[in-house]
């Protein structure tokens, strides 16, 4: 699964919340004007893992957030099951960029995706439904509340994405009831 989103949207924290291994980070000091937002940023990818059983693992890849590293996006999107677009709900100046990232990933792959309205614990956070309207997203696109630093919140996002993927797979057995 790929976790994408604008700069400082919380991708590294999202993967770190559920990965059973310390997230393999490729962070470097920020040297441009985005330094005012944070000191370090992902330049290649973040990498996390959840072992399902002895012969199956779920890998989470976080894309770099800054635009000049977007050549990595297409590489990371190859063979993905689905993707999560993380949005910093408290920074409307990043909404347009989030929409651009979403549209770009949809041209790479027709796999299912969910939009996670992150930082819902911030008092300036836009509610998910307002965010969906502001981004001009269709009713059918799922925008879910998220706090990337909380494991249960991240699990809920990943499960929602997995259910979406499951709906696209040929029917073999009934889909279990969604538990939160």
């Amino acid at each position: 699964m790929v976790v994408t989103g604008p700069f400082n949207s919380g991708k590294t924290a999202f993967i770190g919340s559920v990965s059973e291994i310390p997230v393999v980070r490729t962070e470097r000091r920020v040297t441009d004007n985005t330094r005012a937002v944070k000191d370090q940023t992902t330049v290649a990818m973040d990498f996390g893992r959840i072992t399902i059983d002895k012969d199956l693992s779920l890998y989470l890849f976080g894309t770099p957030g800054q635009k000049r590293f977007d050549f990595m996006w297409e590489i990371l999107s190859e063979g993905m099951l689905g993707f999560v677009v993380l949005i910093d709900s408290a920074r409307p100046e990043t909404f347009r960029e989030a929409r651009r990232i979403l549209d770009t990933f949809r041209t790479y792959s027709n796999t299912p995706f969910v939009i996670a309205a992150n930082k819902q614990d911030d008092e300036d956070a836009w509610p998910p439904e307002d965010l969906r309207i502001a981004l001009g997203l269709d009713q059918g696109m799922r925008v879910l509340p998220c706090i990337a630093t909380r494991k249960e919140s991240v699990k809920a996002i990943l499960l929602e994405l997995l259910y979406g993927i499951l709906e696209n797979v040929a029917e073999e057995q009934p889909v279990p009831a969604r538990k939160r």
Partner: peptide
């Protein structure tokens, strides 16, 4: 120019159900 969308990866339903089950437990 955007690339044409590749075919979705071949993942079986059984694999997905195992992933969902594991994720619920972590």
């Amino acid at each position: 120019v955007p690339l044409p969308p590749p075919a979705p990866p071949p993942v079986g339903r059984g694999v997905l159900l195992r992933v969902i089950d594991r994720l619920r437990k972590i």
